[in-house]
Design a protein around this nucleic acid. Structure first.
Lengths: 159, 159
DNA sequence: GTGAACCTTCCCATCATGGGAAGGTCAAGC
DNA sequence: GCTTGACCTTCCCATGATGGGAAGGTTCAC
């Protein structure tokens, strides 16, 4: 294996293979390749033997991606964030807006989740838990809030 | 189309087509077929012309499924719940246990979500939001808590 | 030089959901 | 009776994040 022409040295002064980059970034090798195929990561510099190599800069980007995924950003959002991060003249306001919008979306999810949990606990609380088969959980599931019924007039199906 | 031999009449005294069942249950026709293919729903009674038909009982089960999905149960869990529901000698305790276990799992998710939101808001709060490109959100993303690095000794890569 | 560990690409799977094509069926209106 | 439009059927493909695994090439330490 020959050293790649580009200077993309890693922390120890030499480029890393994808496996090393994976261990160092917390992003699996599979996902690193996947992000490259999505265009989230630039095409990796290859060695003569076609191995991908990663330097310090790429390592930072991979950690950036992992951290953003942990915070629940979608790949689309991460792409935007990465663009802002890479762009020297980015506006801090855009980043803040993106983060806040995301926080708001997550709060909506949070509310839903809270309602789901509350319902479940309510139902469980009214279930005596014995062997008698009349647990209200099932009754509720079977007859709970129903969808809008018959939004259009049911097509006559007399036969 | 001939009336199917089975008695699976709907609310109006006659069986429904899949589209009508979909509208009445809030589960899309696509998903009804899918649930049938998964074995979650029994194979539907067909008319002579191979149309699926649905009666009151099936309608109830479909609503049951929709409601359970809304409460975040996985199809596997729904299968278990449906089994309990269909089984006359089911134990209310099993249902309660399933519901509570699910609630606990959801609470874990809730905690995660809360942490994510808190982090996002914290970061956004420290971002002045102007045009200067030093928003701490990006800095944090780029250098936040990192994965366990080098769990195994890095294979020597001198070249 | 051999074996282990690593890399490459390619295909398949998950899970819940939906889009859409090609073709059959039904009821209503003329 | 025939047309029309809404409905049904099956089959295949797509999503999005992730992983499994096969077949084959590369590197390195012994």
């Amino acid at each position: 294996m020959q050293r790649a022409a580009h200077s993309n040295d890693g922390p120890a002064g030499r480029p890393l293979t994808i496996g090393q980059a994976a261990r160092a970034s917390g992003v699996s090798a599979k996902m690193i390749r996947h992000y490259e195929s999505l265009g989230l990561m630039p095409r990796a510099v290859r060695t003569d033997s076609n191995y991908r190599t990663y330097g310090t800069r790429e390592l930072h980007e991979l950690r950036f991606i992992r951290r953003a995924r942990e915070l629940g950003f979608s790949t689309g959002q991460i792409e935007a964030l990465l663009g802002l991060w890479r762009n020297k003249r980015r506006s801090a306001a855009s980043v803040k807006a993106l983060a806040l919008a995301h926080a708001t979306a997550l709060e909506a999810k949070l509310g839903e989740l809270e309602r789901m949990i509350e319902t479940l606990k309510h139902l469980a609380g009214h279930c005596h838990g014995g062997e008698r088969p009349d647990c209200p959980i099932l009754t509720d599931l079977a007859s709970g809030p129903r969808a809008d019924e018959q939004p259009r007039p049911p097509r006559a199906r007399r036969r």
